[in-house]
Protein backbone atom coordinates (compact mmCIF):
# COMPACT_ATOMS: atom_id res chain seq x y z
CA UNK A 1 0.00 0.00 0.00
CA UNK A 2 3.02 2.22 0.53
CA UNK A 3 4.53 4.60 -1.98
CA UNK A 4 1.66 4.59 -4.44
CA UNK A 5 2.03 8.15 -5.70
CA UNK A 6 -1.46 8.11 -7.18
CA UNK A 7 -3.15 7.76 -3.79
CA UNK A 8 -5.02 10.84 -2.63
CA UNK A 9 -5.48 9.43 0.85
CA UNK A 10 -3.49 6.67 2.46
CA UNK A 11 -3.62 5.53 6.08
CA UNK A 12 -1.94 2.68 7.88
CA UNK A 13 -2.83 1.43 11.37
CA UNK A 14 -4.53 4.72 12.09
CA UNK A 15 -5.74 4.84 15.65
CA UNK A 16 -7.60 7.37 17.76
CA UNK A 17 -8.29 6.98 21.45
CA UNK A 18 -10.24 9.31 23.69
CA UNK A 19 -8.93 8.33 27.10
CA UNK A 20 -9.55 4.57 27.29
CA UNK A 21 -12.18 4.58 24.57
CA UNK A 22 -10.88 3.45 21.19
CA UNK A 23 -12.82 5.40 18.57
CA UNK A 24 -10.78 4.25 15.57
CA UNK A 25 -8.90 0.99 15.95
CA UNK A 26 -5.86 0.71 13.65
CA UNK A 27 -7.50 1.02 10.27
CA UNK A 28 -5.67 0.95 6.95
CA UNK A 29 -6.96 1.88 3.50
CA UNK A 30 -6.10 3.98 0.48
CA UNK A 31 -8.12 6.23 -1.81
CA UNK A 32 -7.06 6.74 -5.43
CA UNK A 33 -7.04 10.12 -7.07
CA UNK A 34 -10.32 10.97 -8.78
CA UNK A 35 -12.16 8.24 -6.91
CA UNK A 36 -15.52 8.56 -5.15
CA UNK A 37 -14.79 6.75 -1.92
CA UNK A 38 -17.35 5.94 0.75
CA UNK A 39 -16.89 5.36 4.47
CA UNK A 40 -19.91 3.49 5.82
CA UNK A 41 -20.92 2.62 9.30
CA UNK A 42 -23.64 3.01 11.91
CA UNK A 43 -23.72 5.99 14.25
CA UNK A 44 -20.73 5.95 16.58
CA UNK A 45 -18.70 3.62 14.38
CA UNK A 46 -15.86 6.13 14.08
CA UNK A 47 -16.73 7.66 10.69
CA UNK A 48 -16.58 11.26 11.84
CA UNK A 49 -13.46 10.67 13.93
CA UNK A 50 -11.72 9.18 10.87
CA UNK A 51 -12.70 12.01 8.54
CA UNK A 52 -11.68 14.61 11.14
CA UNK A 53 -8.26 13.04 11.48
CA UNK A 54 -7.83 13.05 7.71
CA UNK A 55 -8.81 16.73 7.52
CA UNK A 56 -6.29 17.76 10.15
CA UNK A 57 -8.98 18.74 12.66
CA UNK A 58 -7.88 16.28 15.33
CA UNK A 59 -4.54 14.57 15.73
CA UNK A 60 -4.45 10.74 15.54
CA UNK A 61 -3.13 8.80 18.54
CA UNK A 62 -0.89 6.57 16.45
CA UNK A 63 -0.42 5.15 12.98
CA UNK A 64 0.57 6.76 9.73
CA UNK A 65 -1.31 8.68 7.08
CA UNK A 66 -0.92 11.00 4.11
CA UNK A 67 -3.57 13.23 2.59
CA UNK A 68 -2.85 14.97 -0.71
CA UNK A 69 0.79 14.04 -0.21
CA UNK A 70 1.05 15.61 3.25
CA UNK A 71 1.64 13.86 6.54
CA UNK A 72 -1.42 14.00 8.81
CA UNK A 73 0.72 14.32 11.94
CA UNK A 74 3.15 17.01 10.93
CA UNK A 75 1.46 18.95 8.12
CA UNK A 76 -2.19 19.57 9.03
CA UNK A 77 -2.00 23.15 7.71
CA UNK A 78 -0.84 22.01 4.27
CA UNK A 79 -3.66 19.46 4.23
CA UNK A 80 -6.24 22.12 5.09
CA UNK A 81 -5.16 24.14 2.06
CA UNK A 82 -5.39 21.14 -0.23
CA UNK A 83 -8.79 19.85 0.80
CA UNK A 84 -12.37 20.99 1.09
CA UNK A 85 -14.46 19.84 4.04
CA UNK A 86 -18.20 19.94 4.54
CA UNK A 87 -19.59 18.70 7.84
CA UNK A 88 -23.01 17.22 8.43
CA UNK A 89 -24.46 20.48 9.72
CA UNK A 90 -23.24 22.38 6.62
CA UNK A 91 -22.01 24.84 9.20
CA UNK A 92 -22.42 28.14 7.44
CA UNK A 93 -22.82 31.46 9.15
CA UNK A 94 -26.58 31.70 9.11
CA UNK A 95 -26.75 35.38 9.96
CA UNK A 96 -24.75 36.19 6.85
CA UNK A 97 -25.83 36.15 3.21
CA UNK A 98 -24.53 33.53 0.75
CA UNK A 99 -22.38 36.25 -0.79
CA UNK A 100 -20.83 37.13 2.59
CA UNK A 101 -20.24 33.46 3.42
CA UNK A 102 -18.47 32.97 0.11
CA UNK A 103 -16.29 36.02 0.68
CA UNK A 104 -15.32 34.70 4.10
CA UNK A 105 -14.13 31.40 2.63
CA UNK A 106 -12.28 33.16 -0.20
CA UNK A 107 -10.37 35.23 2.34
CA UNK A 108 -9.60 32.38 4.70
CA UNK A 109 -8.43 30.11 1.85
CA UNK A 110 -6.24 32.96 0.61
CA UNK A 111 -7.69 32.82 -2.89
CA UNK A 112 -6.00 35.63 -4.86
CA UNK A 113 -8.16 38.77 -4.96
CA UNK A 114 -8.27 38.89 -8.77
CA UNK A 115 -10.00 35.50 -8.86
CA UNK A 116 -12.70 36.42 -6.34
CA UNK A 117 -15.28 37.82 -8.76
CA UNK A 118 -15.09 34.83 -11.05
CA UNK A 119 -15.21 32.31 -8.16
CA UNK A 120 -18.15 34.05 -6.51
CA UNK A 121 -20.14 33.88 -9.76
CA UNK A 122 -19.07 30.28 -10.31
CA UNK A 123 -20.30 29.16 -6.88
CA UNK A 124 -23.52 31.13 -7.07
CA UNK A 125 -24.24 29.61 -10.50
CA UNK A 126 -23.29 26.11 -9.40
CA UNK A 127 -25.39 26.31 -6.25
CA UNK A 128 -28.23 28.11 -8.12
CA UNK A 129 -28.21 30.88 -5.53
CA UNK A 130 -27.87 33.91 -7.82
CA UNK A 131 -31.32 35.25 -6.89
CA UNK A 132 -30.80 34.92 -3.15
CA UNK A 133 -27.19 36.07 -2.89
CA UNK A 134 -28.15 38.94 -0.59
CA UNK A 135 -30.72 37.03 1.47
CA UNK A 136 -29.83 35.91 4.99
CA UNK A 137 -28.73 32.25 4.86
CA UNK A 138 -30.97 31.28 7.78
CA UNK A 139 -34.02 31.92 5.59
CA UNK A 140 -32.95 29.48 2.87
CA UNK A 141 -34.27 25.88 2.70
CA UNK A 142 -31.86 23.14 3.86
CA UNK A 143 -31.16 21.93 0.33
CA UNK A 144 -30.04 25.41 -0.72
CA UNK A 145 -27.85 25.78 2.34
CA UNK A 146 -26.27 22.42 1.53
CA UNK A 147 -25.40 23.58 -1.99
CA UNK A 148 -23.94 26.76 -0.58
CA UNK A 149 -21.84 24.83 1.96
CA UNK A 150 -20.61 22.56 -0.81
CA UNK A 151 -19.77 25.55 -2.97
CA UNK A 152 -17.83 27.18 -0.13
CA UNK A 153 -15.80 24.00 0.35
CA UNK A 154 -14.86 24.07 -3.35
CA UNK A 155 -13.92 27.76 -3.66
CA UNK A 156 -10.18 27.17 -3.44
CA UNK A 157 -10.32 24.31 -5.99
CA UNK A 158 -9.26 21.53 -3.59
CA UNK A 159 -7.76 18.24 -4.80
CA UNK A 160 -9.83 16.25 -2.33
CA UNK A 161 -13.33 16.92 -1.05
CA UNK A 162 -14.32 15.46 2.32
CA UNK A 163 -18.04 15.18 2.98
CA UNK A 164 -19.24 14.12 6.42
CA UNK A 165 -22.83 12.86 6.03
CA UNK A 166 -23.48 15.52 3.43
CA UNK A 167 -27.11 14.72 2.73
CA UNK A 168 -28.57 14.34 6.21
CA UNK A 169 -31.82 16.24 6.47
CA UNK A 170 -32.14 16.79 2.72
CA UNK A 171 -34.99 15.52 0.55
CA UNK A 172 -34.43 12.66 -1.99
CA UNK A 173 -34.65 14.86 -5.08
CA UNK A 174 -32.02 17.24 -3.76
CA UNK A 175 -29.92 14.26 -2.80
CA UNK A 176 -30.05 12.89 -6.31
CA UNK A 177 -28.94 16.15 -7.89
CA UNK A 178 -26.28 16.42 -5.21
CA UNK A 179 -24.83 13.09 -6.28
CA UNK A 180 -24.99 14.04 -9.94
CA UNK A 181 -22.86 17.02 -9.07
CA UNK A 182 -20.43 14.89 -7.04
CA UNK A 183 -19.98 12.59 -10.03
CA UNK A 184 -19.27 15.60 -12.27
CA UNK A 185 -16.59 16.74 -9.82
CA UNK A 186 -15.03 13.28 -9.77
CA UNK A 187 -15.00 13.26 -13.55
CA UNK A 188 -12.98 16.48 -13.38
CA UNK A 189 -10.37 14.71 -11.27
CA UNK A 190 -11.45 15.74 -7.78
CA UNK A 191 -11.20 12.96 -5.22
CA UNK A 192 -14.36 12.69 -3.14
CA UNK A 193 -14.31 11.07 0.29
CA UNK A 194 -17.77 10.72 1.77
CA UNK A 195 -19.21 9.26 4.95
CA UNK A 196 -22.80 8.13 4.98
CA UNK A 197 -25.24 5.67 6.43
CA UNK A 198 -27.62 5.78 3.46
CA UNK A 199 -27.15 2.61 1.41
CA UNK A 200 -28.57 4.12 -1.79
CA UNK A 201 -25.85 6.77 -1.54
CA UNK A 202 -23.17 4.18 -0.90
CA UNK A 203 -23.99 2.67 -4.31
CA UNK A 204 -22.71 5.88 -5.90
CA UNK A 205 -19.24 5.20 -4.54
CA UNK A 206 -16.66 3.39 -6.62
CA UNK A 207 -15.15 1.88 -3.54
CA UNK A 208 -16.28 1.53 0.06
CA UNK A 209 -14.95 0.85 3.49
CA UNK A 210 -17.45 -0.37 6.06
CA UNK A 211 -16.45 0.24 9.66
CA UNK A 212 -18.02 -0.78 12.92
CA UNK A 213 -16.77 -0.04 16.41
CA UNK A 214 -13.65 1.53 14.94
CA UNK A 215 -12.64 -1.52 12.91
CA UNK A 216 -12.85 -2.22 9.19
CA UNK A 217 -15.59 -4.77 8.50
CA UNK A 218 -15.42 -4.85 4.70
CA UNK A 219 -13.62 -3.10 1.86
CA UNK A 220 -13.96 -2.98 -1.94
CA UNK A 221 -16.41 -1.95 -4.63
CA UNK A 222 -20.12 -2.34 -3.72
CA UNK A 223 -20.48 -5.46 -5.87
CA UNK A 224 -17.26 -6.97 -4.53
CA UNK A 225 -18.41 -6.50 -0.97
CA UNK A 226 -21.80 -8.09 -1.68
CA UNK A 227 -20.18 -11.04 -3.43
CA UNK A 228 -17.74 -11.52 -0.59
CA UNK A 229 -20.26 -11.43 2.23
CA UNK A 230 -23.10 -13.31 0.44
CA UNK A 231 -21.41 -15.51 -2.19
CA UNK A 232 -24.55 -17.61 -2.64
CA UNK A 233 -27.16 -14.83 -2.69
CA UNK A 234 -27.00 -12.86 -5.94
CA UNK A 235 -30.22 -10.98 -5.03
CA UNK A 236 -28.64 -9.50 -1.86
CA UNK A 237 -27.97 -5.78 -1.84
CA UNK A 238 -25.79 -3.41 0.12
CA UNK A 239 -28.37 -2.96 2.89
CA UNK A 240 -28.38 -6.70 3.56
CA UNK A 241 -24.60 -6.67 3.77
CA UNK A 242 -24.59 -3.69 6.05
CA UNK A 243 -27.13 -5.16 8.45
CA UNK A 244 -25.38 -8.53 8.37
CA UNK A 245 -21.95 -7.07 9.14
CA UNK A 246 -23.06 -4.66 11.78
CA UNK A 247 -25.21 -7.24 13.56
CA UNK A 248 -22.35 -9.73 13.60
CA UNK A 249 -20.10 -7.17 15.18
CA UNK A 250 -22.64 -6.17 17.75
CA UNK A 251 -22.91 -9.64 19.24
Amino acid sequence: MNNSGSDAVMVEDLEKRFGRFVAVDKISFAVKKGEVFGLLGPNGAGKSTTIRMLCGIIAPTSGYGRVAGHDIFSEPEAIKHAIGYMSQKFSLYEDMTPYENIRFYLGVYEVPQEAWKERIEWVLDMARLQDVRYRITRELPPGWRQRLALGCALLHRPEILFLDEPTSGVDPITRRSFWEFINTLAAQGVTVFVTTHYMDEARNCQRLVMINEGKIAAMGSPSEIIAEVFPCRPEADLSDVFIHLMARRGE
Binding site: C55, E77, K80, I83, S87, K89, S91, V108
Partner: peptide
Protein backbone atom coordinates in the same frame (compact mmCIF):
# COMPACT_ATOMS: atom_id res chain seq x y z
CA UNK B 1 -22.80 26.39 19.82
CA UNK B 2 -23.54 26.87 16.13
CA UNK B 3 -21.21 24.06 15.09
CA UNK B 4 -19.14 26.46 13.01
CA UNK B 5 -16.07 25.82 15.17
CA UNK B 6 -15.83 22.52 13.33
CA UNK B 7 -15.69 24.40 10.03
CA UNK B 8 -13.07 26.81 11.31
CA UNK B 9 -10.88 23.97 12.45
CA UNK B 10 -11.05 22.48 8.97
CA UNK B 11 -9.89 25.80 7.48
CA UNK B 12 -6.26 26.87 7.28
CA UNK B 13 -6.76 29.35 10.11
CA UNK B 14 -4.30 29.61 12.97
Amino acid sequence: ENGTMETIRSLPVG
